[in-house]
């Protein structure tokens, strides 16, 4: 395998009522290029992750491309997935040997519609969507099963929220039992961009590239009754394949407090600092938050504060699909 590294990362999170997706993305792309002194003309391959259903518009990624300015024409692809999977596609493409740099970006405006209704459309259209189950209720079923199986309590969930910087109010009512406000992610708009480079090109572009030493992703059954919701087999396999042992820092894409506990069990993160960024409990822009986890983890290598890090992304209801990217300094 060719050595590929994250050499730059930039992101923006917030709630945005004025700017559209392209306008959110443009300064982020500009910033990530400025960090390594590149322009779009230096990029070999571009790959992005967005969702039409967030924008409420078919081909929303086509207009998002205007943030890059694809002229002269560029070599480009797009996944209707979190940007973490766009990064995976770019990593694969860089293995071919003919291109040395890639731009990966993701953008999502989760606040554009009613996110709970929108995500009900992500389910099996024949037997699940007609019931309009919202993602918080589904996560609550998972949380209840997890607490019952492990003997953990709502206090254990609150402790996760607290350590991610959430203000915990144990007296607040349930949103969906056993989940309270502090157990659930905020609804966030955001954009993120990463520059990948190969070998010597990466060393030219920055002092401490975050070398990708393993990256893998796996999917599980969609039907919630068909898998054990209290554990994440797909995260476990992806972590094993990616070589996720001995990391100093792990950024887990866990939108709900109990999901962080499930992921910690699955990935096995002995002694690692978890989610110093606050993770998805602090900002959870759909389609973006997974790429942000990789970018945030890589930043700990780029700034010299960690030697080996892990970025994780999830997609689908109740952690259906998981990606693990392990990076290190060399």
């Amino acid at each position: 395998m060719r050595d590929v590294a994250v050499v730059a990362y930039s992101a923006w999170n917030g709630v945005e009522h004025e700017r559209n997706e392209v306008e959110i993305l443009m300064p982020v792309v500009r910033d990530v290029f400025d960090k390594v002194g590149l322009t779009k003309n230096d990029i070999g391959f571009t790959c992005s992750g967005t969702s039409d259903y967030l924008a409420g518009q078919p081909f929303s990624f086509v207009s998002a491309l205007d943030a890059v300015g694809a002229w002269p024409p560029i070599v480009e692809s797009h996944v209707e997935m979190d940007g973490a999977w766009a990064l995976y596609e770019a990593w694969v493409r860089l293995q071919h040997g003919d291109l040395d740099t890639a731009l990966v970006y993701a953008v999502g405006k989760s606040t554009m519609g009613d996110l709970l209704d929108v995500l009900a459309l992500q389910l099996d259209p024949y037997v699940l969507t007609p019931l309009w189950p919202d993602p918080v209720s589904l996560a609550a079923l998972q949380a209840r099963a997890y607490l019952e199986k492990t003997g953990k309590t709502e206090d254990d969930l609150a402790a996760v929220a607290e350590s991610r910087g959430r203000r915990v109010d144990r007296a607040s009512g349930y949103i969906a039992s056993p989940l309270r406000r502090h157990d659930c992610p905020p609804i966030t708009d955001g954009a993120a961009a990463v520059v990948l480079a190969v070998g010597d090109r990466a060393r030219e572009l920055c002092e401490r590239p975050a070398w990708i030493c393993g990256i893998d992703h796996r999917i599980e059954q969609h039907q919630l009754g068909a898998r054990d919701l209290t554990r994440s087999e797909s995260a476990k396999v992806a972590a094993d394949k990616a070589g996720a042992s001995g990391v100093d820092v792990a950024e887990l894409h866990a939108p709900f407090t109990h999901q962080e506990l499930i992921l910690r069990d699955a990935i096995g993160l002995n002694g690692a600092t978890i989610n110093p960024s606050g993770g998805a409990l602090k900002a959870n822009p759909l389609m973006v938050a997974g790429l942000e986890r990789i970018g945030e983890a890589a930043s700990r290598v780029l700034d010299g504060s960690a030697a080996k890090v892990l970025g994780h992304a999830t997609s689908g209801p109740c952690l259906q699909q998981n990606l693990v990217c392990v990076m290190e300094s060399r």
Binding site: S51, D52, Y53, P58, F59, E80, M81, V118, L119, L121, Q122, L123, D124, P125, L128, T129, I219, E220, Q221, H222, Q223, A226, S315, G316, P317, Q320, Q321
Partner: peptide, 17 residues
């Protein structure tokens, strides 16, 4: 092509099985 063609967001999730 666009998910609006079937009205399912990211249908690969339910097609995985």
């Amino acid at each position: 092509a666009p998910d609006t063609f079937e009205g399912v967001m990211m249908p690969e999730l339910f097609l995985a099985d």
